[in-house]
Structure formats: C-alpha cells, structure tokens
C-alpha cells in the first residue's frame, strides 16, 4: 500500500478521534464542575452521591467502564450506540478526575479571600462565582490540560468497541498490510502532535487568563 494511502486512511480515523474528544471534553468539564462543587458545598446525601461517583470512576478502569456501558446497559433495556457509549464513558471517567482538580483549585485559594468576601457581605453564591472561582480557574488550567491529554490518549480505547478511530484504523491496516512499522509510527506521531497542540493551547490560555486575572500572582 502506498504511504500516502495509509496516511489518508489514518486521517479519517484521526477525525473520529477528534470528534470524540470534542464531545467528551465538555461532558468531562461539566461533570468536574458540578460534582466538584457538590462534593464541596452540597448537603450530606448529595455529597455521598458525588463521592460514590468519584470513587467508582476513579477506582475502576476506563476500559471496564466503557464495556459496562456498551455491553451491560442493554440488559437494563438501555441500548446506546457505540459512539454515545464512548463519549459517556470517557466523559464520566475523565470528569471524575476533574472533580478533584476543581476541588483542589478552589481549596487552594487563600482563606483570606473568603474572609474578605464575608466581611464585605457578599452572598455565598457571589463569594463563589465572583471572588473564589475566577482565582481558582487559573489554578485549574494546567491540571485540566493534563486531563485533556489523558482524554486524547483514552480515546484509543474506543477502537475496542468497533469505533473507527485512529487506533482502530491502524489496527485494521496492520492486519491487512505488512507495513506495521510505518503505520504505528505515524499513529503515535499523530497522537503526539495532538497532545503537543493541547500543551501549546493550554500554555497560551494560562498566560492569557493569569494576565486578565491580576498578573498571575494570587497573593495580595
């Protein structure tokens, strides 16, 4: 097979990979914020639910979660297509790690900031959204960036439930041609470039945000 042909098949797979990332990432961020905040501030029963979600998804492995959603949910009468299963499984998995990022970043805002906002009589939601969160967001960017890279890597698992992503195409080509070295070399490079792109994007975002948020330093 021509090298160009291989690359073009792989590119089709890369598009699917990027699609999954683009859908799972917002879900992960949504889960991270909602359950991170529930874990911190909600009353007992909700907090327990959040802890169960977090411990469950962090304590088992992503591939098992994917299989469970894809193969077991139909037994409960919930049939979902492979793509939805992939997005849900990866979003919930990465989101569970994200809750700890949100929690940690909020807790790392100096205590004096809470105290000043109480002294100025802000309501508890104003305290969170106007004072604490803008500062916590800056702290969240680097760890969220790492999670985004973990998500890109984790998308390769979807090849195991027959989604035609980058890894799936690579394996398909490897089974039909003999140029396994080139194929997997190119695939690894693709993933590497995606990760580097994310790293670059995150650095930009970080400098941009910390500039807007008072020159980066958080101690005043």
């Amino acid at each position: 097979m021509e090298f160009g042909e291989i690359v073009s098949v792989l590119l089709q797979g890369a598009v699917v990979t990027i699609q999954i990332v683009a859908m799972a990432l917002p879900l992960a961020v949504l889960m991270a914020f909602s359950f991170g905040l529930i874990r911190l501030y909600a009353p007992a029963p909700f907090k327990q639910i959040a802890i169960v979600y977090i411990e469950f998804f962090r304590g088992t492995s992503a591939l098992i979660q994917l299989y469970w959603i894809y193969f077991v949910l139909p037994f409960f009468g919930i049939t979902i297509d492979a793509m939805t299963a992939a997005v849900v499984a990866l979003g919930l998995n990465i989101g569970s790690y994200g809750t700890e990022v949100v929690r940690g970043a909020i807790q790392s805002v100096p205590k004096g900031q809470y105290e000043a906002s109480i002294a100025l009589n802000f309501t508890s939601s104003q305290r969170l959204w106007r004072i604490i969160m803008p500062q916590a967001l800056v702290n969240m960017i680097p760890p969220f960036g790492n999670l985004a890279i973990e998500l890109v890597k984790a998308t390769s698992l979807v090849s195991l439930i027959t989604i035609g992503d980058l890894t799936f195409k690579a394996k398909m080509l490897a089974d039909t041609t003999l140029q396994v070295g080139e194929i997997f070399g190119v695939v690894l490079l693709f993933y590497f470039v995606m990760a580097q792109f994310l790293v670059f994007f995150i650095r930009r975002l970080e400098t941009h945000l910390s500039k807007g948020l008072g020159r980066g330093g958080l101690h005043s």
């Binding site: 890279i149 997997f184 993933y191």
Partner: peptide, 21 residues
C-alpha cells in the same frame, strides 16, 4: 514526553506487531 503523551494501547499494539518484524 513522547511516551507519556501517546496512548498505552497504541504502544501495546506497536510492540505486539512491530517487534516480530
């Protein structure tokens, strides 16, 4: 950096398919 930012699964496949070469 390369090893860390590429998927384990692809690395597994790489070794599995390419080593015999």
């Amino acid at each position: 950096e390369f090893i860390r930012s590429t998927p384990l699964l692809v690395q597994i496949f790489f070794l599995y398919y390419v080593m015999p070469e």
